[in-house]
């Protein structure tokens, strides 16, 4: 019988502290009655109130939401198709195109899309952001869907065909319901990735449109103000809700995607 040594839980606990302390500090300072992020002065909701009247921030939040909704919807459809195709057929090009944007540093996708849109003569803005977000979210959805399919008993689809279902019917009645948790988890993941994306948006946004991360970047870069703490805390709350929904649906899909 091995003794459970204490150092492993201790080391693990310290790493969790390292992971969470910074985020908790941001949340704490969002309620701090001081313009400086250095010392606890007193409780206030002032920064959340300021946020409600911050026109540029609200505009950016609206943009982010719209972009994330459209990008996650389209990338879920295309990503599910790609995941299914990669699982079912022996393909060479598609898996490469699906995995490459995930594998290489984001900045490369960002600058190449910038070149592409400018050379096409497109005005950078909402449309270019959405098109770019779809391109990188698609792969994540595809991976989640494919891993869900790979975990499925292949003979289920065959059984459906064997019992009289056409290929389409077998997909709709058997395959799709079974991979649905994966599809939904993929959609939530795409939504979160899109609403959080900074690097690719940074290059494809131009001056036409701003998103929440871009807005936060500008604020952080110029002068740190407590409104950033407030919007950060709200965003964390939003992702927390999304992640909990997703983990209820498909814990394994989340794990494979991250």
């Amino acid at each position: 019988m091995r003794k459970n040594s204490l150092w492993l839980p201790l080391a693990g606990f310290l790493v969790y502290v390292f992971l969470y302390a910074p985020l908790l500090i941001v949340v704490a300072f969002s309620f701090n009655d001081s313009r400086l992020n250095s010392q606890w002065v007193g409780f206030t909701l002032e920064w959340y109130r300021v946020l409600l009247h911050h026109e540029a921030m609200l505009q950016a939040a609206g943009n982010s939401l719209l972009i994330a909704l459209v990008a996650s919807a389209v990338s879920t459809v295309l990503g599910t198709m790609a995941g299914f195709a990669m699982y079912r057929f022996r393909l060479r090009v598609l898996p490469l195109l699906v995995l490459a944007p995930i594998a290489i540093p984001e900045i490369l996708t960002g600058v190449s899309l910038l070149l592409f849109f400018v050379l096409l003569g497109m005005t950078l803005g909402m449309v270019s952001i959405i098109l770019s977000h779809i391109a990188f979210c698609l792969g994540f959805v595809a991976i989640v869907v494919r891993s869900r399919l790979a975990g499925m008993d292949e003979s289920l689809t065959e059984a459906a065909r064997d019992l009289g279902a056409t290929p389409w019917c077998a997909f709709r009645r058997v395959t799709l319901p079974l991979i649905m948790p994966g599809v939904v988890a993929g959609a939530l993941m795409a939504f979160t990735l899109s609403i959080d994306d900074f690097v690719i948006t940074f290059f494809t946004a131009g001056v036409g449109a701003s998103t929440l991360p871009l807005q936060i970047y500008t604020m952080v870069k110029t002068s740190v103000t407590p409104e950033v703490n407030a919007i950060s805390s709200l965003l964390m709350l939003l992702t927390l809700v999304l992640i909990l929904v997703a983990s209820k649906l498909s814990p394994s899909a989340l794990r494979s995607g991250a």
Partner: peptide
């Protein structure tokens, strides 16, 4: 023709 699969392939849902 119908098949009884080794894994039974009963639709879990």
């Amino acid at each position: 023709v119908h098949t009884v699969f080794q894994s039974y392939a009963l639709f879990p849902h």
